[in-house]
Simulated scan of single mutants.
Amino acid sequence: MPFSDARNRSAVSRREALLTAGSLGGTTVAGCLGSNSRSVSVLSAGSLARTFEDHVGPAFEEETGVEVHGEYYGANAVMRMVEDRTKHPDVIVSADATLLRDRLYGEFIDWDVEFAANSVGIGYNEETEFGQRLDAGKPWYQLALETNEGDIAIGDPDLDPLGYRAVQAFELAETEHGLEEFRETMMDLVYEEPEEPQMMAGVEAGSRAGAIVYRNMAIDHGMPFFEFPDEYNFANPELADHYATVEFTTAEEGYTAHGRPVIYNATVNGGADEPDAGHRLVQFLIDESDLLVDAGLAVGDSLPRPEGDVPEEIDV
């Protein structure tokens, strides 16, 4: 079913139970994390920057007294930073669950939890000609072909799953709408933004007409969002086999990503400095689905979903 119709799981928060248990035992939840756990570091996919900074981080600190210190990059770049040890986060979050497992399982981690989903489409400036014609019902792909070079941005596909999903969406749209060489033409037209959190900046300023983004990113910036059809929005699990008919291979690592539904997952780094706080943050993502929904993500009935040797500290 489409992202906009996905049923959002109303998880029962463990907050009251934890606080009650803490008060009965003479401690607070924050105390359970240990007196030295005053912060937790997160290395996350850039599309969740606002989600962590505006929603998850403040709520987590309010509940536990532990600050969330986040850094946000394209998920390919996140994996590379962990692999080459230029970053040493407590919690790792990916916008492509399979990417994290392919790159980090074995040497760094052996488990993760899928906690949210998303949809791909166009965040656009409604005051531009492109936005006005899109609002008038003109097919997005025809309008895209008429844009000037750089009017539409995508993420850098070598750094970011959102980038390679844009390329894959172009290819699926080419087949879906009978558009000859649509993918190649669009790749000549688009601007590749290397900093995922900056994807919407040019659109907000009006220097770009739109960007291929996740739904929550448009919501973060108060911009209108045109969701692609199910056939290439990567939001419908029932179309996983269809999405998998396209792929993209990154230039630097040579990693081949097949098309797949947008699923976020999180784990605690095997060498985390603050593993207790890391586990608590992952548990918070599992429990507080309403926060994620408020941030524009989806949490359907199939989520959360664990993978691998999940530690006993995590209750899924």
Rank of each mutant, 00 (worst) to 15 (best):
F170W: 13
A136P: 11
L143G: 13
D156T: 00
P161V: 08
I154G: 00
F170A: 12
D160Q: 04
L143M: 10
P139C: 09
L162Q: 14
D135P: 04
G163Q: 08
G155A: 07
A136S: 15
A144H: 05
G137S: 10
W140Y: 15
A169K: 06
L145I: 07
Q142S: 14
A169N: 09
Y141A: 09
Q142I: 08
D156K: 01
E146K: 08
D135V: 11
V167M: 12
A153S: 13
Y141G: 08
L143T: 12
D135W: 03
A169G: 07
L159K: 14
D156I: 00
N148Y: 05
Y164L: 14
Q168P: 01
K138G: 02
N148S: 15
L162D: 12
D158V: 09
G150L: 07
D160M: 14
L162A: 15
G163M: 05
A153V: 03
G155H: 01
A153G: 10
P157Y: 00
Q168W: 09
D158P: 12
A169V: 03
Q168C: 08
P161L: 07
A136Y: 09
A166W: 07
W140T: 05
P139Q: 09
F170Y: 15
R165K: 15
G137C: 12
D160N: 15
R165N: 14
G163I: 11
L143V: 12
P139L: 07
D156M: 02
L159S: 10
G155F: 01
D135I: 09
L145D: 12
D158S: 03
L162P: 02
E146V: 06
D135E: 15
Y141T: 06
Q142T: 08
P157F: 02
D158M: 04
T147F: 03
P157C: 00
L145S: 12
A144R: 06
F170M: 11
V167H: 08
G150F: 02
F170S: 07
R165P: 05
D135N: 14
P161Y: 12
L159M: 13
I152Y: 00
P157L: 00
Y164K: 08
I152V: 04
D160P: 05
Q142R: 14
G155W: 02
P139A: 07
D135F: 04
L159W: 04
